[in-house]
Design a protein around this nucleic acid. Structure first.
Length: 282
DNA sequence: ATGGTGACCTGGAGGC
DNA sequence: TGCCTCCAGGTCACCA
């Protein structure tokens, strides 16, 4: 499932396309444009003829600024991979399972494929001094962003009256963390997923943010995580990182620190995997 | 402000 | 073998 590291791998895979001009766009499944209200015809018409700028990312959102010849960048091609989205870059077109959108640029083909169709492309205006797509404006900085300031996030986190895992998954507090890396970071920081944020120490809050950054940096170094081969990076090569997981999906297996069997609990419609001995409520 | 739930989807796994 | 139900995930809308 694409979380921050996987999205960053895709962003890097798009770098060779900077300066490429979009020659043709074909939307094969309009559900891939759920974030683009005006619809497929508008998307195809407005994307065609643009020149790609340098891809950027915040959290799990990825975007490519678009320029028209002689005009400044005002819009971006926004990409959210959702659960199963892939961007595939090929020298020639070949059919692909779950293919939703095809973009031809400078002799190459960029394919957006997405089995579960939770992902979406969109054309979105760049807004504000930071030139962020409007749909990303409410998304907080992620732990890998150079502008990420841990003490500020610690303050905001402890001011909330909610549970820690809920806070980690709240993209308006800190972005890029999904269910997998949340469980990994909580295990590494020895914190219980249902720890109330209001009663945790500032030190504990700093620790879990640090571990979030660390686990995602490590995943990035290994090329991203994948579980069911749905996730493929921009060149069609599968990233596979699951052997490095210490908590997620390991319920019933021994904790790698203390040996106690990890447990799985469901809340907020999600599974949490944690060690009942190492990760106590405080 | 916060929590809870459902909607959006597909296909793999497991039960019978 | 086949049919059925359940489950996974991220985001957002909506209601309490």
């Amino acid at each position: 499932m694409p979380e921050l590291p996987e999205v960053e791998v895709v962003r890097r895979g798009l770098l060779p396309l900077v300066g490429a001009e979009v020659e043709a766009v074909e939307v094969l499944d309009e559900r891939a444009l759920r974030r683009h209200q005006p619809g497929a015809a508008d998307f195809e018409a407005r994307l065609t003829g643009t020149v790609l700028g340098e891809p950027a990312r915040r959290g799990k959102f990825l975007w490519v600024p678009l320029a028209r010849r002689g005009q400044p960048e005002q819009d971006a091609l926004l990409v959210h991979l959702g659960m199963s989205g892939q961007l595939l870059l090929d020298d020639e077109w070949r059919p692909h399972r779950h293919e939703r959108v095809r973009i031809a640029l400078d002799g190459r083909i960029l394919v957006f494929a997405d089995q579960r169709t939770f992902g979406s492309l969109a054309l979105d205006p760049l807004t504000g001094p930071a030139a962020i797509p409007s749909q990303v404006a409410h998304i907080a900085l992620d732990p890998l962003d150079p502008a990420f300031v841990p003490p500020a996030v610690v303050r905001r986190m402890r001011a909330r009256r909610t549970e820690l895992k809920r806070a980690l998954l709240d993209q308006s507090l800190v972005s890029g963390i999904g269910n997998i890396y949340a469980d990994e970071a909580l295990w590494a920081a020895r914190l219980h997923p249902r720890q109330p944020t209001a009663t945790m120490s500032a030190q504990a809050a700093r620790r879990v943010l640090e571990e979030s950054r660390h686990v995602m940096e490590r995943a990035l170094a290994e090329g991203g995580t994948s579980f069911d081969a749905l996730y493929v990076n921009v060149n069609g090569q599968s990233g596979y990182f699951s052997r490095s997981l210490t908590a997620y999906g390991r319920d019933g297996k021994p904790c790698l620190r203390c040996g106690r069997a990890l447990v799985r609990e469901t809340f907020t419609n999600r599974s949490s995997h944690f060690c009942p001995r190492c990760q106590r409520l405080r």
